[in-house]
Design a protein around this nucleic acid. Structure first.
Lengths: 230, 230
DNA sequence: TTGGCTAGAATTGTCGACACTATAAGGAAG
DNA sequence: CTTCCTTATAGTGTCGACAATTCTAGCCAA
């Protein structure tokens, strides 16, 4: 769980200075890191004790986790860390295809030159990492997600950006942790990133959307075949 | 506010039997009906008293409303009914275009014949209502939303359906209440509904998506022009 | 040994209470 | 009369406590 502090970059209506906000962040980290295993029960009193807090802020944090899909909740039975099924994973990717396609389209007409430059640099760095680590294993903060996050924010649509960054990406990380069958399509994915970046740099929203949707659909297809043949 | 009971059809992880769930539903209704005006403060003690409950479930309901975008929250300042700006309205419609486009695409390959028939019947009924009320004023439960809700559920993607039905449609209703400038494009919208339904009936997902996106983009354009020329 | 039942412990949903903060009313100074 | 400060009021964030419910462990019977 480590120290929370302000790892979260300024972005949305998350933090606040409240205790509940810190608990939310710590619990999120614990779930995504696997410290809290999928299916594990989240006992309010236990968590409260372990943080030296009372149950009220813990409850609040847990309810927010539920809202974000990281825990499941049953009345009078409390919360458990979510265990997304393969079907849920696939469903998530369908929605992601739609939303990130739109994000890429908007980013193409909204991102400024400096932002595009940052994105290009990111892709360049990403290439280096792939050469060093060809397996394409998923890192803690994988550059893949960084790329997509940057585009989401670059769309200039705060609703879209928050949905993607706060709701979808954490949930996706949890899905990937559970269904490891799919391995990163390192080089291909990188090439697709490059082309998406080009389209955005040329302010070609239509193309950017098509490429982004293809990119995500390819990942989804890879997952689907990996699931079909164990 | 009327009686809450079980207006919500079975669909998602909403209700539960808890008091907080009932409060959430009642507050949602109050906000969408205008009983609680946009910008109005939501005082936890006041609401708790008016419902004969304590603050705990009220807090929970309010936090959920915040998560769904119906109220804004400031630390140590409490909640106020959201006042979506025109920009937010437009941003919401961009995301909606992406998500409903995907919903229509999926519905085309997922809806069964009986569901399609229901959809067709809905559109037929809708026509009657338009003839009777050509202004296309927004009704309490407007058939427009019913149509879109049915497609969202028909997508067979629970994540997408819940996002649309629970998060987007209420928020959209609030937006429409605030920015009345846009009037329903009754007949045109109906014709578009008809064509979308046809595409779904023919299991043409690609076409259904295109038509749905056009449909929503047209509504967005109408809003934009209405905003530009007051 | 296995299955179902019962008593106990633990947990959840809700409540009332208290410090700290923000807001609003009222008075003093200019 | 306006502006700033003071003070009272109301509200939020958090806490500990209790009833109702659920899970668990142990016992009894087959």
């Amino acid at each position: 769980m480590l120290n929370a502090d302000e790892t979260e970059a300024a972005g949305d209506s998350l933090g606040g200075s409240g205790l509940a906000a810190r608990l939310y962040e710590d619990l999120t980290r614990a779930i995504l890191a696997g410290t809290l295993a999928p299916g594990e029960k989240l006992s309010e009193p236990a968590i409260a004790r372990s943080f030296g807090a009372s149950r009220a802020p813990v409850r609040e944090a847990i309810r927010r986790l539920q809202e974000r899909g990281l825990v499941t909740y049953a009345v009078n039975q409390g919360a458990r860390v979510a265990q997304p099924s393969a079907a849920e994973f696939l469903a998530l990717l369908d929605v992601r295809e739609a939303m990130e396609g739109m994000a890429a389209r908007l980013a193409a007409t909204h991102m400024e030159a400096s932002e595009v430059a940052t994105l290009e640099a990111l892709v360049a760095d990403h290439r280096g990492e792939i050469e060093r680590n060809p397996l394409g294993a998923y890192l803690q903060d994988d550059p893949e997600t960084d790329f997509h996050r940057r585009i989401a924010r670059g769309s200039g649509n705060p609703i879209l950006a928050d949905l993607l960054c706060e709701q979808f990406y954490p949930r996706l990380r949890l899905c990937r942790r559970l269904h490891r069958t799919v391995q990163g399509r390192g080089r291909e994915a990188w090439r697709e990133h490059l082309r998406i970046t080009e389209a955005i740099g040329q302010h070609d929203g239509e193309l950017a959307e098509i490429l982004m949707r293809r990119h995500i659909r390819a990942a989804r297809a890879a997952l689907q075949t990996a699931l079909a043949a164990p």
